[in-house]
C-alpha cells in the first residue's frame, strides 16, 4: 500500500473517530432529553418527592441543589481566590510554594468518594452536624478548591504587567493594586472559572450522599443544618432504593433537568467568554 493511501485511510479513521465522539454526545443528550422532557411538567417541578407513593416531583431537590451549590461557592470562592492571588502575586519559587502546588494538585486528584468519606467523619460525625446542607456544601467546597485556585491563578497571571505597573507607579500599594487594578481586569476569566466550578458542583453526588444526605426537610427552610438531597443524589437514590413504581419516570425527569441546568451553565460560560473577548478587543 502506498504512503498516500495509508495517509488517506488514517485521516479518514481519525475523522471517523471524531465523528463517533460527537455521536456519543448526541446520543446521551438526545436520549436523556427525549425520555425526560415529557416528564418535566409544572407539577413535577413544583411538588415534593415521596418515598412511598408514585407521582412525586423534585421541588425540594431543586431548592437543595441551588442552596448547597451556592453555599459551597460562598465558601470555596474566597479561599480559592485568595490562594490564587497568593500563588500568582506573592509566591516565590521555593519549598513552601512547591508544597502548596503539590497540595493543590493532590487535592485535585482525590476521588470524590474519598471527599465523601472525609466529609462524613469530619462534618457529619466529629462536628456533630449529621446529614446537613452545611456539611455537604463544606465538603463540596474543598473538592472544588483546586479548580478555583487554578482558574484564579491563571486569570490573575493573564492580566498584563502594564496594568500592575501603572497602578504601582501611582503610588498604590501592592494590595490596592490587586483589588483595584488586577482583579477587575481578571473578572471575566474569574467569572468563567467560577461558573465552571459551579457547574461541576451541580452534578456532584458521591461527596453529598453521606454528608448532605438523601432526604429533605419536611418544610421549606433555609436551615443550613437541615439535610438536603440534591438532584444528582436524588437521581441515584430513586434507582438505588427502587421502592417506587415510577422510579424510572422520576429518574428520567431529574436527568433531563440536570442536563438542562448543565447546558444553561455552559451557555453562561460562553456568554462570559464572549463578553471577555469583546472587552479585550475594545481595549485593542
Amino acid at each position: 500500500m502506498s504512503a498516500k493511501r495509508i495517509d488517506q485511510i488514517a485521516r479518514w479513521t481519525v475523522t471517523a473517530a471524531a465523528g463517533l465522539i460527537l455521536l456519543v454526545l448526541g446520543y446521551i443528550l438526545g436520549s436523556v432529553l427525549i425520555n425526560g422532557l415529557p416528564v418535566l411538567s409544572w407539577h413535577f417541578l413544583t411538588s415534593r418527592s415521596s418515598n412511598l407513593e408514585p407521582g412525586g416531583g423534585i421541588s425540594m431537590q431543586i431548592f437543595n441543589t441551588i442552596y448547597i451549590v451556592t453555599l459551597s461557592m460562598l465558601i470555596a470562592v474566597p479561599i480559592g481566590l485568595g490562594a490564587g492571588v497568593y500563588l500568582a502575586e506573592y509566591a516565590r519559587p521555593g519549598r513552601l510554594t512547591s508544597l502548596i502546588r503539590l497540595a493543590t494538585e493532590s487535592l485535585a486528584s482525590v476521588p470524590s468518594i474519598v471527599f465523601g468519606l472525609f466529609g462524613m467523619i469530619v462534618f457529619a460525625n466529629a462536628a456533630g452536624l449529621g446529614f446537613s446542607r452545611l456539611g455537604g456544601a463544606a465538603t463540596l467546597a474543598i473538592l472544588n478548591l483546586p479548580l478555583i485556585v487554578r482558574v484564579s491563578e491563571e486569570a490573575i497571571r493573564a492580566v498584563p504587567a502594564d496594568l500592575r505597573h501603572a497602578s504601582l507607579a501611582l503610588g498604590a500599594t501592592k494590595e490596592q493594586t490587586i483589588f483595584s487594578a488586577v482583579l477587575p481586569a481578571a473578572v471575566g476569566r474569574l467569572a468563567t472559572g467560577v461558573t465552571l466550578a459551579a457547574g461541576r458542583a451541580l452534578g456532584e453526588s458521591a461527596v453529598l450522599i453521606a454528608t448532605a444526605g438523601m432526604s429533605s426537610p419536611r418544610y421549606l427552610t433555609f436551615d443550613p443544618l437541615a439535610s438536603g438531597e440534591t438532584l444528582a443524589v436524588h437521581l441515584w437514590a430513586v434507582n438505588a432504593e427502587n421502592s417506587l413504581s415510577d422510579a424510572a419516570r422520576i429518574a428520567n425527569g431529574t436527568a433531563a433537568f440536570l442536563i438542562l441546568a448543565m447546558l444553561a451553565v455552559s451557555l453562561g460560560i460562553g456568554w462570559f467568554a464572549r463578553r471577555l473577548d469583546r472587552r479585550l478587543a475594545g481595549q485593542g
Binding site: D162, H165, S167, R279, Q283
Partner: peptide, 8 residues
C-alpha cells in the same frame, strides 16, 4: 508608560 494602559 509607552503604551496607554488605562484600567478597565
Amino acid at each position: 508608560f509607552q503604551r496607554p494602559n488605562p484600567f478597565p
